[in-house]
């Protein structure tokens, strides 16, 4: 095997070290207890150390003999738009109600594709709103008001 450095491997390892480390620090703030009566902090501490150690091993291996050669393209537009759409849904579902929130979330989401045309986007959003209202509210009796208090209902 040829020796090569792999950025994705190092990144993956780094994420494990970071999350594992954060949990270790957090776990130290809880009672550790004794082996007989383990406290709430003991198990997360153990696993957190394991995650961080494995992450470190992945980083080292990535520096010597990496596996994933390149990261590939990142669809930045899709990442931003989809995250925004999901956050929007969570933030407004209570206030705006089911119909407006679903419609705007669906419309936002369609924009994630770089090949979207406005007319298709509106048609897809409208169709999905009708479909999800029929499925979830009419069919499955989901207890979410169709129109929310922010709209004066």
């Amino acid at each position: 095997m040829e020796r090569r450095r792999s950025f994705p491997d190092v990144l993956a390892g780094g994420i494990f070290v970071l999350i594992g480390g954060a949990f270790v620090v957090g776990a130290l703030g809880y009672e550790l207890g004794t082996p007989l009566r383990m406290g709430p902090g003991a198990f997360p501490l153990l696993v957190g150390v394991a995650v961080a150690a494995l992450g470190l091993a992945i980083v080292i291996k990535g520096l010597i003999a990496g596996e994933v050669a390149s990261f590939g393209p990142i669809p930045w537009r899709a990442v931003v738009v989809i995250v925004l759409a999901i956050l929007f849904f969570g933030f407004t579902i209570r206030g705006l109600g089911f119909v407006p929130t679903s419609a705007i979330t669906a419309l936002l989401t369609t924009l994630a594709s770089s090949r979207v045309r406005l007319l298709t986007a509106v048609a897809v959003a409208a169709g999905l709103t009708v479909a999800s209202t029929l499925i979830f509210v009419v069919g499955l009796q989901l207890r979410i008001p169709l129109w929310g208090p922010w709209l004066g209902f």
Binding site: I86, A106, A112
Partner: peptide
């Protein structure tokens, strides 16, 4: 282009309906 907005929307609605908890929706992202 029709399929993926459907997945995202249904995922958000479905997850929210578990406990009517907006944090569960943020967690998806």
């Amino acid at each position: 282009q029709v399929l993926f907005p459907m997945i995202i929307l249904f995922a958000a609605i479905g997850t929210y309906s578990v406990g009517f908890n907006a944090y569960d929706v943020y967690a998806i992202a």
